[in-house]
């Protein structure tokens, strides 16, 4: 495609007149090449515009419907005894020609740089560290490359000890709680998966409009749009958060961000008014007040 475009362009160029300045051959080649490049650029941009239009047409009907469910394991909650070992050991780690750590007296000094040593035999001479419960050294050893890494298992030896290798969380058979849904949506926002975050927070608000996290969910929904520079939808949701959940701990934040969104939209009067009213509306919201005051100044309200 590109080649053909170039060809067409080159044909066109050959009938155009030579550049006016400097009659040198190499200079003429240079100018010609430059013009070809500019045309290629324009074709690329045109193609891109067409592609975008096609995509818009193609995706519009099913917008927002193809959200992958977020696996519960993906939550940033604490995992038990998860080591990289199983993954890393299979990743084709090169045999590294290095001096074993034990023989470092003979190793030339590397000016403070430290290298990992070759793997010690599993039955290495070092005194075994004190262990609690089961061992999982076999899996840990290859990745530690010379360190005798040993996994210490919880004193109680709970179910986590049963599945350390694959790091799978105990799967809950219970339906997703409101808290889980909120956390999952918040996690999506963290990972910049805005579509998932939006769907999640909306689901939360429709299912649990009276939950004590609803105000927070409403605020976070606003944040989801704000992060995408969709300040109109951000402002709408902040406004809802502020009006419908005045007792929520996120209400002051909602008002403050409403002000910022309005400023972004060029509605400076209203934006500044919103920022200015944070301290009177929420005299106890220390953080939001501070922030609003700073923003009030920064926007030269």
């Amino acid at each position: 495609m590109l080649k053909r475009s170039l060809f067409v362009v080159a044909l066109l160029m050959s009938v155009s007149s030579a550049p006016a300045f400097a009659d040198d051959v190499s200079n003429r080649v240079d100018s010609l090449e430059q013009q070809v490049h500019q045309l290629v650029g324009q074709i690329e941009e045109l193609n891109n515009t067409v592609r975008q239009l096609q995509n818009q047409v193609a995706t519009q009907p099913k917008k927002m419907t193809s959200v992958d469910p977020v696996a519960p394991q993906a939550l940033p909650i604490k995992k038990k005894l998860v080591l990289d070992a199983p993954v890393q050991a299979t990743a084709g780690v090169e045999t590294i020609e290095e001096t074993p750590l034990q023989q470092d007296a003979s190793q030339p000094a590397q000016q403070g740089t430290i290298y990992g040593g070759v793997a010690q035999p599993a039955d290495g001479a070092a005194p075994a560290p004190k262990l609690l419960g089961d061992l999982n050294t076999a899996a840990a050893q290859p990745q530690d490359g010379g360190f005798q890494g040993q996994v210490l298992v919880p004193p109680g030896g709970d179910q986590a000890a049963a599945a350390p290798a694959d790091g799978v969380e105990p799967v809950s058979l219970q339906p997703e709680t409101p808290d889980d849904l909120f956390l999952r949506s918040e996690k999506s926002l963290l990972q910049l998966q805005y579509a998932e975050a939006e769907t999640g927070f909306k689901e939360f608000l429709s299912k649990y409009p009276d939950h004590n996290l609803a105000g927070s969910a409403q605020f976070k929904l606003g944040e989801t749009f704000y992060a995408q520079q969709n300040y109109t939808d951000a402002a709408k949701n902040y406004l809802t958060g502020y009006k419908q959940y005045p007792k929520s701990r996120r209400a002051p934040d909602s008002l403050m961000k409403l002000g910022l969104s309005l400023n972004k939209l060029g509605q400076k009067d209203q934006g500044c008014a919103a920022l200015g009213s944070v301290s009177s509306e929420f005299p106890n919201a220390v953080e939001a007040k501070k922030r609003a005051q700073a923003e009030f100044k920064r926007a030269s309200c």
Partner: peptide, 19 residues
Amino acid sequence: MMMTRLAGFKMAAICCCFL
């Protein structure tokens, strides 16, 4: 059609370039 469009671009490009 293709030719006309490209020719248009070319003119624009050259003008821009010189300007």
